[in-house]
């Protein structure tokens, strides 16, 4: 199973609107969640409960930046931006 998404950072635009991919299902776990993509059949691990909230609620914000501002303390934004960029790569999130 793919234990983690590749470390390639795409042209992830923080100011664009994003949402969880419609073919992705989440199962919450103590460490965060499993995300399963029914299209490409990849299993991805979301490694913190906060990241799960961000992924789930992205669609309610006009941009990823707005979501992070609302949900994540400023000093952690950098690591969440990188995590979201990887989730674009693995198609867990997509442009809204």
């Amino acid at each position: 199973m793919p234990a983690s998404s590749p470390d390639v950072v795409t042209d992830f635009d923080l100011d664009q609107a994003w949402r969880k991919h419609p073919q992705v299902a989440l199962r919450e776990e103590a460490f965060g969640a499993l995300a399963y993509h029914y299209g490409n059949r990849r299993l991805i691990f979301l490694k913190s409960p906060e990241l799960v909230v961000v992924v789930r609620d992205l669609e309610n914000y006009p941009s990823a930046r707005a979501a992070l501002d609302a949900l994540i303390p400023v000093d952690a934004h950098g690591s969440y931006e990188r995590a979201l960029a990887r989730l674009v790569e693995s198609e867990v999130i997509c442009g809204a």
């Binding site: 234990a3 776990e29 103590a30 460490f31 691990f45 490694k47 913190s48 906060e50 990241l51 303390p73 952690a76 690591s79 969440y80 995590a83």
Partner: peptide
């Protein structure tokens, strides 16, 4: 809040 630790192996 940390995204990297502890390792997933440890969580599993």
């Amino acid at each position: 809040m940390a995204l990297e630790s502890p390792s997933l192996t440890d969580r599993f």
